[in-house]
Design a protein around this nucleic acid. Structure first.
Lengths: 341, 341
DNA sequence: TTGTAAGCGTTATCAG
DNA sequence: CTGATAACGCTTACAA
């Protein structure tokens, strides 16, 4: 036992300084009500004087719980951190905030490919549960996380299938909101830029919402498909280009994501099409960049504060042994300049 | 000892299954070279069969190290997570990636005000060290972190003073790059939108770089001050407005941050000033939104991948007992549409 | 090359 | 209300 080790103030030292037993220190500091006020005070003072802080590893070892949630952010392989959809970053932030508000800490990991997929946070007692956030496009990642044992406590955002324990935006309602807004502004030939077959499940839901609103108004839904495997903005540019070249008339587009919408706007501008006069554009996500585009992008925003809270609450419920059902995050329309006033 | 507790596979179980002692299991799994190949194999198989995973809390308690770095993101009080400068999010991502590459995990906390400032990650053995990232505007936060004991291992990005152990962009060189670019494009009356007194230390360095480049070229530096306490974009709008109203001639502005530049661009547009023909604009930071403004913003980008690596490397060096010196992150100019081609 | 045994610093049970 | 004391599951010095 001749290891070299930094000297550490332990609860024994505090006990000695306060003239009580070590277990009393533990109880006093943990707020156990059975400890008398004067004792508690003496212990608190001694602890403060000695700069004592509980060793969380020892506490967790003993308790069997960590008070930590792991958050895995799934990226596209090789993708620059900077090009990650900003919505996910906002969600990361609100998740951390929600976790903190409930007394949990968050361990964050970015994962993008099979050589770094790893979800054994709970098995290793690094965390009590797992939140997985990220693009459904990375199917390998979802295949991996689907293999986690049934004892694993977890929730996810953006799951490609309903077999995952998910929290999601109310995509259907949001898409209807967007479509109805376009109709209200007098647009009639409204095309959806998106996909009904993308692993990005949300896209399908958004398309369905769009189609439902349009059909209800007596119009024909029309889908301009995005090409797979490209950056979203490029998908938007190409879809817009293809739409123009098709020769079919249209006066508005609903894009299933802001980045697609932004790409479309730039293509329309390049081809001399004026927004919002010739063509109206609505996106989905509420990313920051949309506020700076020309014109600023009208979009459907998810309440990402609610999203973070819902993720954390669901996970904590799961940890507590409940079997919570999937949840939807409410959305709202942010009217900006890409649709007529 | 009648606690209810979930049954857990321990290294004893693996030892029994493999027919070796518990310490041999520990060594075999840790890759200790003294263990013979056949034994190692038998242990690995048994562990796999039983789905055994090391309990990190026990391991850390014993080792005295956590293999974790804490990252505190300082926000403006009350600020929406979404309005956080996107550069910080990118930095968060690259820091996590750099940490993972070096075998560390990252515990993330967002903190904004005195009631949630907290830096005792190391004292509580939750982490081996601390990375603090955030706006210098939150002076209360920096006051707090300055009180951490000298034994605390930490580094920060965006410190308001040189007494902090920092990593920073090469602001001076970046500002010179931006200014020289404007000169090369034929702009002559170049005004800086910024501040030399902001707690945001980087702003002063950027102003100095701008002034140095301009002076070297035989021109007069000129500063249009931003008003404190407003959102950056609004600061940009007002500074641009004040500059126009001053009546003094100018043909370009160098803004000390992209968000200020973006605000200025929108004000120039509102007042009928054409960019880049009437006025050239350069920003600093390389935020995503700049790529979507009208016209897209020419800017100075820090290499945030390097930034993350540098933060992590410095911190690990500090943990290892070294006394590393401050480091600068290289920058580059991203030429886009807000300056003449 | 492997086994034995001593902690790491808590929390929780039990007794008083 | 408080004090002994037994784990929690691992890593590592030491012995064989």
């Amino acid at each position: 036992m001749a290891e070299k080790r930094i000297i550490r103030v332990t609860s024994f030292d505090v006990a000695e300084a306060a003239g009580v037993s070590q277990s009393t220190v533990s109880r006093a500091l943990a707020g156990d009500t059975s400890i008398s006020a004067p004792t508690r005070e003496r212990v608190a003072q001694a602890a403060a004087r000695l700069n004592y802080q509980v060793d969380e590893n020892a506490a967790r070892l003993r308790r069997g719980r960590t008070g930590t949630l792991a958050l895995v952010m799934i990226c596209r392989p090789g993708q620059d951190r900077k090009d990650l959809n900003p919505f996910y970053f906002a969600l990361l932030g609100s998740t951390c905030a929600a976790a903190a508000a409930r007394g949990y800490e968050v361990l964050v990991a970015f994962q993008d490919s099979p050589d770094n997929f790893w979800g054994h946070f709970q098995d290793r007692r690094k965390a009590d549960g797992l939140i997985v956030i990220g693009t459904s496009e990375n199917t390998a990642a979802w295949d991996y996380f689907a293999t986690l044992g049934p004892a694993t406590h977890w929730v996810c955002w953006g799951a490609p299938s309903d077999t995952f324990p998910w929290v999601r935006s109310d995509n259907h309602a949001g898409a209807m909101l967007a479509t109805q807004h376009l109709l209200d502004r007098g647009y009639r030939r409204i095309v959806c830029l998106g996909s009904e077959t993308s692993p990005q499940r949300q896209f399908k839901e958004r398309y369905d919402g769009y189609a439902a609103a349009l059909t209800a108004a007596g119009h024909e839904p029309r889908l301009q498909r995005i090409e797979r495997g490209l950056p979203r903005e490029e998908q938007g540019r190409r879809a817009a280009s293809a739409l123009i070249d098709s020769g079919e008339r249209f006066d508005a587009v609903f894009a299933v994501s802001d980045e697609i919408a932004l790409g479309a706007i730039s293509e329309f501008a390049r081809r001399g099409i004026r927004i919002p006069d010739d063509v109206g554009v609505v996106g989905f996500d509420g990313v920051r960049a949309g506020a700076w585009s020309n014109p600023p992008l009208t979009t459907v925003e998810s309440d990402f504060e609610v999203a973070g809270s819902l993720l954390v609450d669901r996970l904590i419920a799961t940890i507590g042994g409940e079997v919570p059902s999937p949840r939807r995050v409410p959305v709202r329309l942010a009217e900006r300049g890409s649709t007529r006033a």
